[in-house]
Each structure stands twice: as C-alpha cells, then as structure tokens.
Design a protein around this nucleic acid. Sequence first.
RNA 1: GGCGCUAUCGUCUAGGGGUUAGGACGGAAGAUUCUCAAUCUUCAAACACGGGUUCGAUUCCCGUUAGCGCUACCA
Length: 480
Amino acid sequence: MTTTSQNLLQPRVRFAPSPTGYLHVGGARTALFNWLFARHFGGTLVLRIEDTDLERSTPEMVEGILQGMRWLGLNWDEGPFFQTQRMEMYRAAAAQLVLSGHAYSCFCSKEELERRRQAAAAEGRPPKYEGTCRRIAREEAERRKAAGEPAAVRFAVPDSGSTSFDDAVFGKVEFANSELEDFVLLRSDGVPTYHLSVVTDDIDMRMTHIVRGADHISNTPKQVLLYQALGAPLPVFAHVPLILGPDKTRLSKRHGATSVMAYRDEGIVPEAFRNFLSLLGWTPPAGTPEVLGDAELVRLFGLDGISKSNAVFDRAKLDWFNTEYIRAYPAEKLWPLIQEEWTKAGVVPERTDEVWLFSTIDLLKPRARNLKDFATSFRAFFTDHYETDPAAAEKFLKDPALRQMLVELAGRYAALSEFSEAETEKVLRDFAAEKNMKAGALINGSRVALTGQGVAPSLFAVMVSLGKEKTVARLQKAGG
RNA sequence: GGCGCUAUCGUCUAGGGGUUAGGACGGAAGAUUCUCAAUCUUCAAACACGGGUUCGAUUCCCGUUAGCGCUACCA
C-alpha cells in the first residue's frame, strides 16, 4: 500500500525552501498552498530551511526567504529549522540503512563517476550508476573506510519491481525500479543529499501531507523507497503544477521579476498577490468569485481544487487584482501601506490629519494601479514637491492665453468664501462663460496645474482636497 | 535519448457522452466629454491532431504531436 490513512483534523505540512536564492514566485505559491491547507484544517505549518547544499546556501538567502514570507503574510507555526543543524540525525539514518542492507558505501570518486557518465552518453547508454560498489562486501567496505578512504553512501534500489504512490492531485503514479539508480544518500564528506534529509525530516517532523512542486514527482519514488526502508508510513503527496512564464517555459529571471520582494517594490498589495497566486493552479468551487480575501481563501482551499496542468504567470491579471484590492480597502487600511511608499520615495506629507488624509485616499484609490501611485502620480495631493508631467502640460497647458486665464481664475477663487465642489465648479463655469471659452479647456488646464498630471479625479473634488490656498497658489504659478 | 506528467478562448479556468462550450483577465468597438489609468454597454476569442468505443464524442480508450519535469556526492 502506498498511502496511509491520515488525520485531516490535525494535518502537519511544511514549506522547505533551499536558501540558494531569494523566495521566488513558484516557492511563494507552494508556501501559500501549504499555509492555506494548514489554516483551512487548523493544522500546523513548519518552516524548514534545506541548506544541505553547502556550496550554494547562504545566510543572506535565508534572510531573504524569511523576509519574503513575512511580506506575504505567511506565518509558520514551527521553525525555521535548519538541516545543517540536524546532521547527526541524517548520518544515523544512513548508518541504519547500511546496517539493514538498504544502503552501501560507494568509493567511486566524483571524477570517475563523471568520466563514466560521459562515456555512457557517448555510447548512447543511460547515464545510470551501475552499482559498482554494491558488490563490495560490507566487511571490506568497513576496512577501506577505516583506512581513511573517502566513501559516499548509496541507496540500494531494488533491481526489479516498481514503486508507486497515490498523489492527491495526479492520482496513481508508478515508476519501474529499473529506471531508478542507486542514488547517493550521504556525500563522502558526511553531508546528506536532498532525498535523505527530506525524508528523514519529514518522518521526524511527522508530516502528514507533502505539498510541493510537480518538479518533484520524479523524485518521489526514491523517497517512497526510503520511507519503506526506514519503516515509516507514507505521507500524502500532493504535487502542484508549475508556474510558467508567458513563453510557457519555466519562470526565470528572463521573465522579469521572480523574487516576490520585487512585487512589493512595485506596489503590489500582499493580499492581492496571495489571491492571484492562489488561483494559479487551484480553482475554488464553481460559482465562486475570483476576488477572494484571505478568510475566503482559507475557507475554500482544498487539495481537490488543484489542477494538473502548469499555469502561466499573467502579470496583467495580477495588476487587476491589485487595483481591486486597493479600491476595496478602506483608507485606514491603505494608509500604512501608503506610508511605506512615501518613506521609500522621500515624500513628506504636509497634512497628517486623518479626516483629510482618508478622504483624499478614498478620492484617489479608484484610479490607483499600485501603491506606488500614491507617491508618484498622486504626489501633488500630499506635498508641494512634485514634478509636472511634460506630456500633460504639452497637451493641456500649452496655450499662454489659457495660462493667463488660470491666473485670473485664481483670483476668483481667492475671493471665494465657501470652497466646496459646487461653488468651485460654479465659479469656473461662470468664468468660462464670461470669457467665452470652453469650460473643458479650463478644467483640463487646471487639472495639470493642480496635480501635475493629465489624469486625476474630478477637478472640483481635487480642488476641495487641496484646499483654497493651494488651489490658488498653483493656479497662479501656472501663469508663469 | 530514457522515464514521468500535462493538453478547453492570447492567459487563468468551469463544464462534461447530446450545451448557443460558461466565467474572469486581457483585447476591440461604442457611450460619457472634466482628463482616463475611472465608469457603463456591446463584440471577437477555445475543446491540439489521428484513430477507435458509441446512435452520438470536446468529454471515455489508444496513438501522434507539443510543452513541461526528472535523469548530480543540487534542492
């Protein structure tokens, strides 16, 4: 039997990244699915850092991954555990496997192995390890090791038969054992490889479900063999389809931002990112809307909704989710996120009273595409230190006569006692009629003069938000 | 190359032996005229191919093709 009954009431899952790079989109999605699964069932999410690749793992990347997890809002319940701090356990497991006859010492050097692989490739043979050292008697192997000869430990894969498992997403997957080679468990320097450390840890940490990328499907039979050799019950495997770039090849640097932190830098709201990511490879029950906040996601998530085919990362849709969240968020929720953008962009808001701030944010948010807009195109609402978009000025503010009109209009506004939307509009329209010019020209010109942008909310709402003093000053400034 | 997995609009997908094959993003057109990056309306857009099974396949089976994954003393 390849599966065992699992307790869905208290599932234990893990996210196990390797700190050889930042937290990328694919890893983030895997982390999210594990998080959703754990939260849905009230289970436990363990964070485990798989740093057994001593060459490529770095502390900076560990920090980068934790930072990514925090930005994504994916909290874990146990860990982070580091495999490099659990070396003794893997060595003990390897020793146990040698003792039970499931593994053996291999004295072939890396160079020798590489040479044989080349030769096999040249002859068109599969580059599989032939099991040379499997024939060395245990006593002799012990003697050679004692003499100081470096040795790795390999798993002795059965020569015949097959190994299968029931994947929660893909169903039954079966591999002929003859396709599997005697893979290395322990390197000659005593450091475990992936297969050994992952299985040892998953057993030790009592994982009930292994939710990971589909790129691990081919690795799974080796791990199943290890579970069996170690006498441990199998967890439920759930492989999730991969995320591809727009050209349908695996998502990589060539496709632009693959680090999740790049999305923070681009002004993406974490919850929007989670929503978008959740729908890459998973579909909620039929009839459910696509905009799903965390609570809904947690409530609806399940392994049965995971699809089998790879998904393309669609940036345009991410942006759409982002605008949906920015619009839906109340100003007070947007406020701290906006402050971060201001800090990054060096914007120092001139007014900080919440009533004004929140109403201005509410005025702006329907037109925001990302959080950065509040520090860039909306900048003029919060500070006098802003640039005017040359294209907008060219389009709406080019005419010198119009600019003079704006100065004159400023005078009318200066005399206004009630600075409301209705009043400011009336003043402008009366002025336009009096001067026999189109109100639209005045409105568009004023918009650029007031906001530095060609696109902004309704002009009179803008004026009220800015207040009389700024409106007058900026209109006057437009004159020259 | 070998092994494994996958295949519905451009993208994410629903569906399922008989449907006008549904939705969302994106796209196009129009409306609005106070801009559009807002809003509203409308439209275009898909079952990879070939064999079966069947009264009937997009759906089930086989094959082909394509894509992806694995094939390390990486994870």
